[in-house]
């Protein structure tokens, strides 16, 4: 009986040793699907699921603008193969599988040998996915494969140094504290769908200067044009006057936008990083109100857009 107990104890220890043995003893797993990441990285996955990267392939706006991806050139960035499979800054190509996951974990993190890349210099290489630090993960080169198709990275390169921030990541992957006290880069990628991010990108001013009522929009918070992205985005500045106690209609003062290539009657009116644009307004009124509305597509109605900033100035009390 004692012998049997001893045998089981030895076997049990052997089994435990086998379970606890370093993963290096196993051949590297092929990381082929981002669903494999979810078990260990649920918190990051939850952030990513709320992002527009996760939504990239199924987003109805994208579907509409790409004619349901009949414009197949759009698929490459909306369901890409791993970016690290391509030279730095080169464009990506479309993948075949799990397109519904959009810009998924592997799109940014998978390396060609089946491993996983991270921007964390203290990465725990013993973790099952054997993460390793890859310099490109923290560089604009990683993002430019897709985001320079519409010139955002070129705009960043030409931005004033004080607005360049910590590459793209400084604004779009800020450090977050997650449950359990661990910190990490936010995988929700706050950008134009996030009101706080929009509000921090530009400031809107309304005041009287030398007797002139003037409103000024300044791109003092983003390291690229406002709105960035060729074609799809627009920001409209509106004004409303109060005369004889009556509020007038909102009137569009200006549209900030880079037009589609075939909109030949329009020019690029984006506001470059660090620059301002002022508009002189009427001063023969009781009050002036201005508001900036951001639209994720240029055909969107004013009501469907997001009010980023607004201001009111009482002139004649």
């Amino acid at each position: 009986m004692r012998f049997i107990s001893a045998l089981f104890a030895v076997l049990g220890i052997a089994a435990l040793a086998l379970m606890l043995a370093p993963q290096e003893s196993l051949p590297a797993t092929e990381w082929y699907s981002s669903t494999q990441c979810l078990d260990c990285h649920a918190d990051v996955a939850a952030e990513w699921k709320s992002s527009h990267h996760a939504f990239a392939y199924e987003n109805p706006e994208v579907r509409k603008l790409s004619n349901d991806f009949a414009n197949q050139e759009c698929i490459a960035c909306h369901a890409p193969q791993p970016v690290l499979k391509f030279e730095a800054g080169e464009r990506v190509l479309a993948r075949q599988s799990e397109r519904g996951l959009g810009v998924d974990c592997l799109a940014c993190h998978a390396v060609t040998d089946g491993g996983v890349a991270t921007n964390n210099r203290q990465a725990n290489g013993d973790a099952p996915c054997h993460p390793r630090f890859v310099e490109r993960m923290g560089s604009v080169q990683l993002c430019s494969s897709c985001h320079n198709q519409h010139k955002t990275v070129d705009q960043w390169r030409g931005a004033p140094d004080n607005l360049k921030g910590n590459n793209c990541l400084g604004c779009h992957m800020p450090q977050e504290f997650r449950q359990g006290g661990r910190s990490g880069s936010n995988h929700a990628f706050p950008a134009s769908h996030d009101l706080v991010a929009l509000q921090s990108a530009v400031s809107l001013d309304l005041k009287i200067e030398d007797g002139v009522v003037r409103t000024t929009l300044t791109n003092d918070g983003s390291g690229h044009n406002f709105p960035t992205d060729e074609r799809s985005r627009a920001a409209d500045l509106f004004v409303q006057y109060q005369v004889d106690g009556k509020l007038g209609e909102w009137q569009r003062l200006y549209r900030f936008r880079d037009p589609y290539r075939d909109e030949t009657d329009l020019t690029n009116t984006q506001l470059p990083s660090g620059q301002s644009m002022s508009f002189d307004l009427r001063n023969d009124v009781q009050s002036v109100a201005v508001r900036l509305i951001y639209k994720t597509n240029p055909f969107m109605s004013d009501d469907d857009g997001v009010v980023v900033h607004s201001a009111t100035l009482v002139i004649d009390e």
């Binding site: 089981f8 076997l11 049990g12 089994a15 086998l18 196993l26 051949p27 590297a28 797993t29 092929e30």
Partner: peptide
């Protein structure tokens, strides 16, 4: 005895199945 055996199987099973999940990379 059977209790020990069940425990042993329970302990060993996960490590065996993990081995099976590993897919070789196609060259």
């Amino acid at each position: 005895m059977s209790k020990y055996l069940a425990l042993l199987i329970a302990v060993l099973a996960p490590s065996c199945s993990r081995q099976n999940e590993v897919t070789p990379i196609t060259t």
